[in-house]
């Protein structure tokens, strides 16, 4: 069920170019090492992607759209 929804969400967010900001991994409570690896890798990924571009549209839609037009 989870994987269905997450895969769906990734596809949908692809419409806005945000699909890489969602990640799903199966980690059991016994896999501490894997947990660290996944979280570290994903944190690095998110940092390199930079801040989420969407709040700008909500807070100042006109400015964000004008900036996007240039």
């Amino acid at each position: 069920m989870t994987i269905k929804r997450i895969t769906f969400l990734q596809e949908l967010l692809g419409l806005f170019g945000l699909q890489e900001r969602v990640h799903l991994a199966w980690i059991s409570s016994a896999e501490a090492q894997k947990f660290v690896e996944v979280v570290t890798a994903f944190t690095e990924k998110i940092k390199s992607l930079g801040p989420n571009p969407l709040p700008a549209y909500r807070d100042a839609p006109r400015a964000a759209l004008a900036a996007a037009a240039h």
Binding site: G14, L15, F16, G17, P61, L65, A68, A69
Partner: peptide, 18 residues
Amino acid sequence: VEAYGPEEGRNRWMYEFQ
């Protein structure tokens, strides 16, 4: 619409949503 690509698509959709 899908062919707009991530950035242009995002701008266009957000223009519509706002």
